[in-house]
């Protein structure tokens, strides 16, 4: 077998309002980046990184998030907090494709001296990263702190987006964050739950059920939106609804419960929790890239 040559396409995407069908090509590119970087890294989390690519594509390239790759610390930017830090390969791919740093750098994931740490880090000063994350449940509380700041101290119109896993919701402190977001009426907070029902040990419902999710969030004073996390029209309208909620100052945080499939759409990975924390080997990477053409 010939050793696979890995090339990252020199392509950057702009962030503007797009038609639903325009996202599939972007999401494919992000997924190819995820496969390539994880293959080169020889370790890391494939499942969630692939399963959330459609959400990342809409959020960063559909005119939802406000950011400026030329000025990553721009004061008016919306902030994105990846609470599920282990799926950072998709965040890194997204930031690179948005122009925050060179796409070639995706080849350094998890390697000694890389800015692309195994879980996001602030001290490597990778542009676009807002906080370290990795110990589950903490990023969402940081996002709540940011939203508190923006709503009550700086009184600006910035928004905070945060993505948690579903297994992550077994961490008790995530519900402390939910209680606080509801209590403080953080309508500038958009919490996305990557609800693939998979975690390392199996189905979330079998390891420790977190359901029903919508009723739990409603009880904490959230505006709850349930969507198919692979359907671009539904993703777009969910984010539109959040932005409307924020503009109208409804006095409630928004949660988007996105039903996704771990590893989607790679045939041998889809909805298979065994792909939570492993990278593809050469053969699997080749097959996956073939499916993503």
């Amino acid at each position: 077998m010939v050793k696979m040559k890995v090339i990252f396409e020199q392509k950057v995407y702009k962030n503007f309002r797009r038609k639903p069908e325009e996202f599939s090509e972007i999401a494919k590119e992000l997924r190819r980046d995820v496969i390539k970087s994880l293959y080169l890294a020889k370790s890391g989390h494939s499942g969630g990184s692939l399963g959330t690519a459609d959400i990342f594509a809409v959020l960063f390239f559909g005119g939802i998030m406000r950011y400026n790759p030329e000025a990553p610390r721009w004061n008016g930017r919306d902030r994105f907090v990846l609470s599920a830090g282990h799926i950072c390969p998709i965040l890194y791919a997204t930031l690179a494709r948005a122009g925050f740093f060179p796409v070639e750098e995706l080849a350094t994931l998890r390697k000694l001296g890389s800015r692309l740490q195994g879980h996001p880090a602030l001290d490597t000063e990778l542009p676009g990263i807002e906080t370290a994350a990795g110990s589950l449940g903490q990023g969402i509380s940081i996002a709540v702190g940011m939203a508190l700041n923006d709503k009550y101290l700086d009184k600006n119109d910035r928004r905070v987006f945060a993505l948690t896993g579903d297994g992550e919701l077994q961490e008790g402190s995530t519900w402390e964050a939910a209680m606080c977001a509801g209590n403080y009426k953080l309508d500038n907070l958009c919490w996305i739950v990557d609800n693939n029902d998979c975690q390392i040990d199996g189905r979330v419902r079998n390891v420790m059920s977190i359901y029903p999710l919508d009723k739990k969030f409603e009880a904490f004073n959230f505006e709850t939106i349930s969507i198919d996390g692979h359907n671009y029209s539904q993703i777009i309208s969910a984010f539109d609804k959040f932005i409307e909620n924020h503009n109208k100052k409804i006095g409630k945080p928004t949660v988007i419960i996105a039903q996704t499939k771990m590893g989607y759409p790679i045939s041998f990975m889809t909805d298979n929790y065994e792909w939570h924390g492993i990278p593809p080997n050469e053969e699997q990477a080749k097959l996956a890239l073939l499916e993503l053409q």
Binding site: I142, A147, N149, L153, D154, S173
Partner: peptide, 28 residues
Amino acid sequence: PERFFSIGIAEQNATTIAVGLALSGKIP
């Protein structure tokens, strides 16, 4: 009062909320 936030008996959350405030330029 406008610069004081009651977080309740939730120290893990309070600590991480403080981080969110610090990353927004405050000294919590």
